[in-house]
Simulated scan of single mutants.
Amino acid sequence: MSNNEVFSDDEKQKDSKLKIERKEGEPTSAFKGSSWASLLVGITAYLIGLYNASMELNEKGYYFAVLVFGLYSAVSLQKAVRDKDEEVPVTGIYYGLSWAALIASIILMSIGLYNAGSIVLSEKGFYAMSFVLSLFAAITVQKNIRDTQRARERD
């Protein structure tokens, strides 16, 4: 038996070990980690920006509430869309409210940034981008959690 054949067997064992650890349909650890990192970076950047902002406390509260509302509505909508796709019963009112809530959070953020006279344009862009990053990451994290749960339930 040559060294190449031993190496090939070792590689096959490593490959089979990796396949055993990750169930079919489960996202990779790298994807899960990058999703969580994106969520933490987006929320942390947004909150640090709010903390350092030279705006009134009620304005900071508004932007914080819009972030929380946006995150919740994004996750709720992702769940409703996924449930509907998987033929899990979803009422039309909940589905519609999930869409309305997400749209409302985006509109509230847009109106708030448009009317904010005390914020320079670069800060407005910063808040908008960290808001969008946070929403997308929240949806992705929730999807990963659900995919992982589903993959592990199959066994």
Rank of each mutant, 00 (worst) to 15 (best):
L121V: 09
F64W: 11
V6W: 13
G33L: 08
A80T: 08
K32N: 09
V120S: 14
S16W: 11
V41I: 14
L135V: 08
S130M: 12
E153V: 05
D147Y: 03
N144F: 00
S105F: 00
K14Q: 12
S54K: 15
A30R: 08
K79V: 09
E59I: 05
K19P: 01
Y95P: 02
D15P: 00
G61C: 06
L67S: 01
I48D: 06
E26A: 15
Q149W: 04
T28Y: 05
F64I: 05
S29V: 04
S130A: 07
W99Y: 09
D10F: 15
E5W: 07
A37D: 15
S118C: 03
I107V: 15
S35H: 04
E5N: 09
V75N: 10
S110Y: 08
L39F: 15
D10A: 14
I119E: 11
I107M: 11
G92H: 05
D9Q: 12
T44M: 08
N144W: 00
S8L: 12
L77R: 12
W36I: 03
L133Y: 03
L57C: 03
S8N: 14
K17F: 14
E153L: 14
I106S: 01
A80K: 07
Y72M: 04
E24G: 04
V68W: 07
I145T: 09
Q13D: 10
S118Y: 11
V88R: 06
N4I: 07
F7M: 11
N52M: 02
Q149A: 10
N144L: 02
L50D: 00
K23M: 00
F136Q: 12
D155T: 13
N4H: 12
V66Y: 01
F126L: 11
L40G: 07
S73I: 00
V66N: 01
G92F: 04
Q142A: 15
T91C: 05
I139N: 10
N52K: 05
I139R: 12
F131K: 02
M129T: 10
Y114K: 13
G125P: 00
Y63T: 03
L18M: 08
S35G: 10
P27L: 02
A53I: 01
G42E: 06
E153S: 13
V81A: 06
D9N: 08
I103R: 07
F64Q: 10
R150T: 11
K12H: 06
S29T: 04
Y127E: 01
K14A: 14
N58D: 15
S118L: 08
E11V: 13
E123L: 05
G70V: 02
Y46S: 03
